[in-house]
Design a protein around this nucleic acid. Structure first.
Ligand SMILES: [Mn+2]
Ligand SMILES: [Mn+2]
Ligand SMILES: [Zn+2]
Ligand SMILES: [Zn+2]
Lengths: 140, 140
DNA sequence: ACATACTTTAGAATAATTATAAAGTAGTTA
DNA sequence: TAACTACTTTATAATTATTCTAAAGTATGT
């Protein structure tokens, strides 16, 4: 019944390792998120709208939120925040940096930024990660 | 009628330069925000609750939001975001860095972090600012 | 096929924020 | 000071993003 080709393997495994059975809805969401070359930065609303636009039978809001949350909890998505009280998610789960350009988000690979000087963590604490945001504006 | 001592001057000026008449409510908010030694990081709800706790006549939610927004638009407050879809504000409006420690935010002066390597801005763009977040966790 | 557990969904509930509009206050003028 | 006007405050409604609930649907094991 379940024809699972190699192309599907990766994103179905992400569902499985998030404790989610690979239902049709979840497989389509996971495929949409992970079956692409470049990092994807998105809000749940954006994800829902772009996926549901092309479907006759819509996937419900709750399923989008539930699936994204489970993938995030399992470490397959990273959450971040711009300055508009909406959660964004990032398919690039490694520690990395970003350009923020008027709501557009672009990845900067970790090795593109190195530090000359960094403060120490306060006593009792240690550094979990260091992430940089470079805000852009138009020339002139 | 209006006894304006020197201590009040600064935060009343911030109101004036935000296009706000220094009414009683606004003066108290501005004083609460700016009449302190250390940087203050807050949400509007936190501000409202801590100020209204000690008052018999409460200041309304709308006045808190309106005043904070006007101060922010005039550049007297900076907005930022943690990962919980709530706006935070920062009385330190200079470009600077932060430790994030379990919802607690601590300023890092700009000169405490220097870069060895930084990427160039994409064509047509230039860098507005570079801000670093150092996420902390407990030692072992 | 049946039982059970998991899933999807519509719609209600919540939290943060913004909008609305009526009542209050202040600055200016007569 | 009275009146006029513009600005302000406030309670309340509306909106947006998100989470919760509970009923109906689907899959899995026997
Ligand atoms: Mn907002
Ligand atoms: Mn929210
Ligand atoms: Zn990214
Ligand atoms: Zn700060």
């Amino acid at each position: 019944m379940h024809k699972m080709n190699n192309k599907n393997k990766t994103f179905i495994d992400k569902l499985r390792s998030s404790g989610l059975r690979p239902t049709n809805q979840r497989v389509e969401i996971s495929k949409f998120l992970f079956n692409r070359k470049k990092t994807f930065h998105f809000t749940v609303e954006e994800l829902k709208n772009s996926m549901n636009l092309k479907r006759s039978k819509k996937i419900s809001t709750a399923t989008f939120y539930n699936t994204v949350h489970a993938l995030k909890s399992a470490g397959h998505l990273k959450e971040f925040s711009l300055e508009n009280n909406t959660s964004y998610y990032d398919t690039n789960i490694t520690s990395h940096h970003h350009f923020f350009d008027n709501g557009k988000v672009i990845d900067i690979k970790s090795d593109k930024i190195t530090f000359q000087k960094l403060p120490e963590a306060p006593k009792g604490k240690k550094i979990k990660n260091v992430e940089v945001v470079i805000r852009l504006e138009n020339n002139n």
